[in-house]
Design a protein around this nucleic acid. Sequence first.
DNA 1: ACTGTTATCGTAAACGTTTACGGAAGGCAT
DNA 2: ATGCCTTCCGTAAACGTTTACGATAACAGT
Lengths: 356, 356
Amino acid sequence: MSIRDLARHLDISIGTVSRALNGKADVNAETRERVLEAAKRLGYVPNQSGRSLRQGTTNTIGFMIESTIETVDGGGSFFMPVFEGVQSVFRRHHLDLVALLCGTDEDPASYLNRVVARRFVDGLIISATARNDPRIDFLLERNIPFVALGRSATKGDYPWIDLDFEGVAATAVERLVGFGHRRIAIGTPASDLNLGYLFLDGYKRALAASGIDFDPGLVLPANGHEEGGYQVASALLAQKPMPTAIILVNENMAIGLYRRLYEAGIHPGRDIAVIGFRESTQSRFLSPTLTCFRISLRDLGIKLAEALLSTLPAFAGQYPPERVALIWPMELVPGESDRTVPGAGTAHASTSIPGS
Amino acid sequence: MSIRDLARHLDISIGTVSRALNGKADVNAETRERVLEAAKRLGYVPNQSGRSLRQGTTNTIGFMIESTIETVDGGGSFFMPVFEGVQSVFRRHHLDLVALLCGTDEDPASYLNRVVARRFVDGLIISATARNDPRIDFLLERNIPFVALGRSATKGDYPWIDLDFEGVAATAVERLVGFGHRRIAIGTPASDLNLGYLFLDGYKRALAASGIDFDPGLVLPANGHEEGGYQVASALLAQKPMPTAIILVNENMAIGLYRRLYEAGIHPGRDIAVIGFRESTQSRFLSPTLTCFRISLRDLGIKLAEALLSTLPAFAGQYPPERVALIWPMELVPGESDRTVPGAGTAHASTSIPGS
DNA sequence: ACTGTTATCGTAAACGTTTACGGAAGGCAT
DNA sequence: ATGCCTTCCGTAAACGTTTACGATAACAGT
């Protein structure tokens, strides 16, 4: 069922059929009607390869994610809502969205190379940007439209949207200081990911603003998984005196942290204050419920999509080109985990912990 | 940088270049060497659109996931390892894997229609199969190669791999009965998803085998999120006498359940036995750690890929056609949550729960 | 010298589109 | 009647590949 068949069937030239389908102006209203009707009736759908070959465009946008996403993503629940938002915009413009999975055994840059060289997509959304991300240089160099979810330290003018890690860390510190805390630890992945750097930066800045000296010993590096949180808790317990508060970069870490504290008979929310990041569906079901930060992920996706559209030549009319450089705000969601007064003593007699 | 440029640059015909690149036999070893070298040096990558147009094949496989995945997937961590496995197989055959995201506001069947009509992919992996899944009929009808992760009740001969929900439920029941439990509740999504049906089936079967009457009041329907678990716990607490054990279909539910039980002063693992499904990175960090079932997700992905390959015409030589219909086994991982003796009394004086 | 075989390569068609270009037909004013 | 504009449509080229087919040359065998 090609366009040729359709044309033969209608006894019209193939060019007219194409024009009718694509909404070109110079085609009679009645003929267009006939064409559209027949196309629907015969189930004709234009072949994407032919179209791409001719126009040099694929009407497809790729959202690239590594399978080792861990830091922000609470196990994957981060991306789905973002996808939703992106797709809601793209659908209106007849763009398809596919997720590009780069396996752990392949270099992200070479993967990207393959994707763009093959003319798979018209544009890209990349995420989990490293502090120095070769993909950005690559895309800039080849002039491929893209937008980055997460800024990097790379020079160059490109559109990006990033979460306000700095602000989150600062807000958390300010809140804890307001509660009277002075020894505030922070658990963050010692990573080349940019967010680790930013997170620490906000932490330091807020400490300084509160007149508290920065103590490198309170920075507890760990991966973003549950084990990481577990290790952070162990490091916490080893300190004397124990810090009275801890800020985490990732909710999975909170679960590991809770576990280790419970094993030691320390109750988060009573013996130590915990603020986590990012809110997930679990946050309010942990015991204690976790004070954390909410992100409107769907809106983030929408904004990402719009930012990309404004870099696509084909949409220059509708979305005037503008360099998006946006720091995405987040909202604190109070929980039970930071309701604690630092002077009340840290080494409570523990209540019995089931199973430990 | 098309194949034409490459040919001109080498002063060879364009046909020879193509043959050299594709490893055809009738090309001189030395010329092939020259072509390959020049291609690499000039960064030539064949244009996928042109190739697809000519061969009618895209070298791309789509893995379709709805964005509302909830039941099996602990927030997304289910798919990534599966993707890894699938991709590890596909890469060896120069197939690309893309994830197809069907938004919640679009009908999965119509989405699928668009994808295949456009000749986007050569084959498909679909997941989250409903008990009656129109996608399966659609794909069978059009003779599109695919494999389903999850069987449905649909008639027809198609390859599928499914988790052993029935076996899991039965194993859980047997284990609990072995510990002396008689009143065993089950929390499962009252869904049109096939897994809900299968799960309940295994539960009933194992009960019957143990000579325990099936009590419909012990089937507690709820969604697969934390709220669902929370509701299940509420329903549990409302029963007199309270069941001594509960089986859950999803780990997110376990977190909600724990929360509700803690609020009521009931300790899972001491006052009530809990068995969950599926193991995630969190399972051993909950308190009590969750008895659950482990799935080798990467291997599952590998098997899925091989099943698909054996249905692709282009690989009929290497992967002889065979109808895969596989029930994927799972392994019980003991935790602390089901270490309880049913006779020891259910309404312990609760220890203080922080934050409640 | 003729035929047959083999190795290697060039030629050209084909895949399904889109689109620049031109042509035909009609209407209107001069 | 001529010229001009508008509306509509057909023609054909082009996008980048792959591949069936034929051509050439070299070589061996008779």
